[in-house]
């Protein structure tokens, strides 16, 4: 069985005016379907990429997988558990939370600017009561920093003292802190410069190999996805229009939208033999 199974995921947003106003103006209810009947599965230890343009619903799917947004219909099973199962008890919910972590798009908004790096990394460790002993906790923080290519003395600094790429590393370290199995990467490099992007992508690859991590990788950039993903799903207006193994899908796209995306993506490949 797959590690992650999303079946019939649907999310609607009610954008209509309040009920009372509708009664007076006679306006109809206005429901936006951001994600419509999306199903896919991710095998353990692999990377599944969702590609799509703005408004395609990719971030909404990320939030539903992360358990911070409930689907309107459909369900997500992670290792056989569902965040929104009403019978899920607190202990199991905590265990499930510990398995899923996220790396975000903005290196600026994803770290609390008033917290020191050490405290940011300690938060998941403390929240899940992973380590009792204070000295061991400190050691773990240093270990995490070194794992993402930063140094021990960075833990006493604040986020604004780091560059975008370094902050993304810290964000990754925070995601790793509670030994997750699935990491959702929501456009993790779209705010970074090319040379830094390569560093972060390589780091993600290394961590996957070392820890057997499963990734859901969300991006608008087909070039980045083609170097990261085992499998790609193409999203358009909240629907999954095409899905397939990376090499097959890129070499032989079926859906017109995928073909258009491929043709439109800027690529330096033509210059490099």
């Amino acid at each position: 069985m797959s590690y992650v199974t999303a079946s019939g995921l649907t999310r609607q947003y009610d954008l209509s005016d309040p009920w009372f106003i509708r009664m007076i103006t006679g306006r109809k209810a206005n429901v936006l379907t951001a994600v419509n009947q999306v199903s896919f599965s991710i095998e353990k230890g692999t990377t599944y990429a969702l590609v799509g343009e703005s408004g395609s619903g990719k971030s909404t799917i990320a939030k539903m997988l992360a358990g911070v947004l409930a689907p309107s219909q459909g369900s997500v099973q992670i290792d056989g558990h569902d965040f929104n199962n009403p019978r899920l008890d607190n202990a199991n919910k905590k265990m499930l939370r510990q398995r899923v972590q996220m790396v975000f798009q903005s290196p600026y908004a994803s770290l609390n600017p008033r917290w020191k790096i050490g405290d940011i990394l300690l938060e998941p460790i403390n929240a899940f009561n992973l380590i009792e002993d204070k000295a061991t906790r400190q050691k773990r923080v240093i270990e995490l920093l070194e794992q993402v290519g930063m140094s021990a003395h960075d833990q006493t600094k604040y986020p604004h003292e780091f560059s975008g790429g370094q902050r993304q590393r810290i964000s990754i370290a925070r995601a790793l802190a509670c030994h997750p199995e699935l990491i959702i990467c929501d456009e993790p490099t779209s705010a970074l410069d090319v040379s830094v992007q390569a560093q972060v992508l390589n780091l993600l690859k290394d961590l996957q190999q070392e820890n057997g991590l499963t990734y859901l990788f969300i991006s608008h950039d087909l070039a980045v996805i083609s170097t990261m993903a085992n499998k790609i799903g193409v999203l358009k207006d909240g629907e999954l229009v095409e899905e397939g193994e990376t090499s097959g899908l890129l070499a032989n796209p079926q859906h017109a939208y995928t073909k258009m995306l491929l043709a439109a993506a800027p690529d330096i490949g033509a210059y490099i033999s």
Partner: peptide
């Protein structure tokens, strides 16, 4: 050279290969 090599290409690399990276930052 580094910039060109660090830019991901569609169909460029197999998944196992890593991107070229320039150490450090500007």
């Amino acid at each position: 050279k580094g910039l060109v090599a660090a830019t991901p290409q569609i169909n460029g690399a197999s998944l196992k290969d890593k991107l070229f990276q320039i150490p450090g930052s500007m």
